[in-house]
């Protein structure tokens, strides 16, 4: 007999030599050696477990009552409490360097977090005379964008700087302040009032600047540019 159990209707295995002596393997074939089908014990559910479940259920009820926003479709803040007056206090003004650093998250898509740009594609901000010079020029670039050739430190770039006029005066001033003081840069901060003044002056402009236009514009100072008299180089 081979090691295979012959079940009812099973054709005898033909691939194998039939051995002469009874094969002990037959007794231990998988189907024969197994235990009986599983049965259930009747241990009772522990009391501590039930208590634990009641605590969880209680917590769930509390959590739903507190955080479901009255099941309204227009309540997204889970701490919303019906009837409570909306908080009127304005958030404290952000530190310009922190605000600038955060706003720079957008700029670093091209100019990189190192401020070095991409050689041949996006100009560097670190050590760039445009960034470190008269702040009115970078403010103009941010407000309306820049297109056409521009030469920074001997390399020519021909990209398209988009307009960022959707940023507030504070944000533009902050990000320029950050850029002017980050890495090895150290130039004095930019005043939001300067941004506001230039925004007012060039409000109708629809086109991005070109570099020659900016050179001309830089010779006519903005009407109410209030720059700090004393340059304050500071490192972040």
């Amino acid at each position: 007999m081979s090691d295979r159990i012959i079940g009812p209707g099973d054709s005898p295995p033909q691939k194998y030599r039939v051995e002469a002596e009874p094969d002990p393997a037959a007794l231990v074939a998988p189907t024969m050696r197994e235990m009986s089908e599983p049965t259930d014990g009747i241990a009772p559910t522990p009391v501590w477990l039930l208590l634990f479940f009641f605590v969880l259920a209680g917590w769930s009820g509390y959590y739903i009552a507190r955080n479901a926003g009255g099941f309204r479709a227009d309540i997204y803040n889970e701490h919303y409490i019906a009837g409570a007056a909306p908080s009127l206090e304005k958030p404290a003004p952000a530190d310009p360097l922190v605000l600038g650093r955060q706003t720079f998250n957008v700029c670093m898509q091209c100019h990189q977090d190192t401020g070095k740009g991409i050689p041949g594609t996006y100009p560097p901000l670190e050590g760039s005379p445009v960034v470190l010079g008269d702040p009115a020029t970078p403010v103009r670039i941010l407000l309306h964008g820049l297109q056409g050739d521009i030469t920074i430190e001997g390399a020519t770039y021909n990209g398209q700087m988009p307009s960022w006029d959707r940023f507030s005066d504070e944000q533009i001033a902050a990000v320029l302040t950050y850029v002017r003081q980050a890495w090895t840069n150290s130039a004095h901060p930019v005043d939001p009032a300067l941004v506001a003044a230039i925004r007012k002056q060039t409000g109708e402009r629809a086109q991005p600047w070109t570099w020659p236009e900016l050179v001309i514009a830089s010779k006519t100072p903005p009407p109410s540019a209030t720059e700090p008299a004393e340059p304050k180089p500071a490192k972040p």
Binding site: V106, Q109, C110, Q112, I118, T121, G159, Q160, P162, S163
Partner: peptide, 22 residues
């Protein structure tokens, strides 16, 4: 679309992200 309005950047970045974002 608001925070990266440059089509040129999008093309370069899609073609090879290492160009714009090493």
């Amino acid at each position: 679309g608001a925070r990266q309005p440059s089509r040129e950047w999008q093309y370069l970045h899609l073609f090879n992200p290492q160009i714009t974002s090493p």
